[in-house]
Every structure is written in C-alpha cells, then in structure tokens.
C-alpha cells in the first residue's frame, strides 16, 4: 500500500472529530455532499470551503497532508477544469490564440466544478481519516436499522462489511506470497508491455481466489461452530452513544447550513 495515499485510510487520534459519534459524522457528511450541489455563488462556495478547512483544522490533520494524499484525484480535478475551460462557449472571450478561444463562462464553470469536486473529496476523506472502518460499519448498521422492517438485510450487510475489512490485510499478505512464488517460477510482473503485464496478473488472481474461497468455507464452519445463526436475538458488544459533543456539533452544523441557504441566490 502506498502510505501517502489518504483515501480510505484511518489515522487514530483524539481530536474533536475523532470523538464525535460516527453516526453524527456520517449524517453530516452525507448532507454536506448533497448541499455542495446547491451552492451557486461565490459567497456560498466560500462558506462551504471555509467549513471544510475548519473541520480539517479541528481534526488536527494537516491540510497539506490531505491535499497531497489525494494526488490521483488531482488529475481528475485538473482534467475536468480543462474540459470545461476549453469546451464551454458562454460569456465574453477573455483570451484567444489562433483557433483556441477561452470564454469567461468556461473559466467560471471550470473553477466551480473542480472546487465542488475538491470539497467532496476533502470532506469524505476526512470521514475515513477520523473514523475507524469498524465505527463506520457500526454507524451504517445503526442508521439503516429502520430498513429491517422492509426485510432489508442490514445486519448481514454490516457483518459482510466487517469481515471483508478484517480479511483485507490477510489477503494482501497472501497476494504478496503468491506474487513471490510466481516470480520464482518465472512470471514477470514488472517489465514488458502493458498487455503482457495484464496477462501476468492472471496467475496471481487464480490462486488468490481459490484460497479466498477456501478461507470462506473454513470461516463459515467456524462461525457455525460458534453459534452464529443470523442477526436475530443477537446482542452487541460495541455500542454507540451520542454525547454532548454531538449535540453541539449538530447545532453548529445546522446554523452554518441556515447561513448557507441565506447566502445562496
């Protein structure tokens, strides 16, 4: 794993953001993601950007660490900026070079789209940076539990999520072992054309899948032996509880949202 890549990573800590209940964080970020699309002027975008930077400040993580950590996303952000810049024919021409014309509308659109994208990525990676995967799973199970009335398999979904999270490092180790074993048999993963390297992945994936299925079989047997029979009648060790901090956070958040809708036009 590339350690500078922050997407999906968790950095343990004790900041305000770490201490918030995962359900509060999940709901706030979910609404934030929707609200970003309602911003329609400089002031409202400004407020959302300030909010994002402020929460990063609260998380005690450095802004540069996050901006650097989303490097692969920067490509998309810049790409979408350029697309909108060159292909929008709105407003006045602000710059011209032989056939190439850049309109003011394109500049504005490019900027807003990429800012929107950047804000979304920053805020959502802030969620995973300050919340452990288990907490996210618990929060999801808890928030989705009303859906159980309509036979939606909430518990099963959460269990599947937590088991897959638990087996990621195991399968990574396994993949490492397999690639070494195959390399020692002459499989070349590092050189050659893109096509030949893609073919070289097959001898890695086949043994990985076989072993994953074997593991799944063992795990199912072990779970059954330990008395697992679905979500019914189960108690939970990990419990979530809202605190005074969550209340404060929600009040501040709602206040900011009200200001946001007043700033919009």
């Amino acid at each position: 794993m590339k350690s500078w890549l922050v997407i999906g990573q968790y950095v343990p800590g004790h900041s305000v953001l770490h201490r918030l209940d995962p359900r509060t964080k999940l709901l706030m970020i979910f609404t934030y993601v929707i609200i970003v699309f309602f911003a329609n002027n400089t002031l409202s975008y400004g407020l959302l950007a300030i909010f994002a930077i402020w929460t990063i400040f609260l998380s005690k993580l450095s802004l540069t660490y996050i901006l650097k950590g989303i490097t692969p996303i920067w490509f998309f952000i810049i790409f979408s900026f350029l697309i909108h810049l060159f292909f929008t024919n709105d407003g006045d021409i602000i710059w011209q070079l032989s056939g190439l014309k850049i309109y003011s509308g394109g500049l504005v659109k490019g900027l807003t789209i990429s800012l929107r994208f950047l804000l979304l990525i920053m805020v959502t990676s802030l969620l995973t940076l300050t919340t452990s995967p288990m907490e996210i799973t618990d929060a999801l199970e808890n928030l989705l539990s009303p859906l159980q009335k309509w036979k939606f398999p909430v518990h099963e979904l959460a269990l599947m999520l937590s088991i897959s999270l638990r087996f990621i490092p195991t399968l990574m180790d396994e993949l490492d072992k397999i690639s070494k074993a195959q390399a020692s048999r002459g499989v070349d993963l590092r050189t050659g054309s893109l096509k030949s390297r893609m073919y070289a992945v097959i001898p890695l994936l086949v043994p990985l899948f076989i072993s994953a299925f074997r593991r799944a079989e063992d795990l199912a047997m072990a779970m059954e032996a330990r008395g697992y029979r679905g979500g019914e009648g189960r108690t939970k060790l990990r419990q979530l509880s809202y605190s005074w901090l969550d209340f404060q956070a929600v009040v501040i958040y709602i206040f900011i949202m009200i200001i946001f809708f007043m700033l919009r036009n």
């Binding site: 995967p133 288990m134 937590s162 088991i163 999270l165 638990r166 195991t170 074997r214 593991r215 063992d218 795990l219 072990a222 779970m223 330990r226 008395g227 697992y228 029979r229 009648g233 189960r234 108690t235 939970k236 060790l237 990990r238």
Partner: peptide, 21 residues
C-alpha cells in the same frame, strides 16, 4: 487465520457471545 471473525481480539471473543444473546 480462518476462524478469527472479529476485527480485534475483543470483538472476536464477543462474536460467540453476541450470537447467544
């Protein structure tokens, strides 16, 4: 490796207990 259900040691021991309510 294949009988460890929980993410942490504590969660794993809890699994059997949770199943039994």
């Amino acid at each position: 490796e294949n009988q460890f259900v929980g993410t942490t040691v504590r969660d794993d021991i809890a699994f059997g207990l949770e199943n039994r309510g």
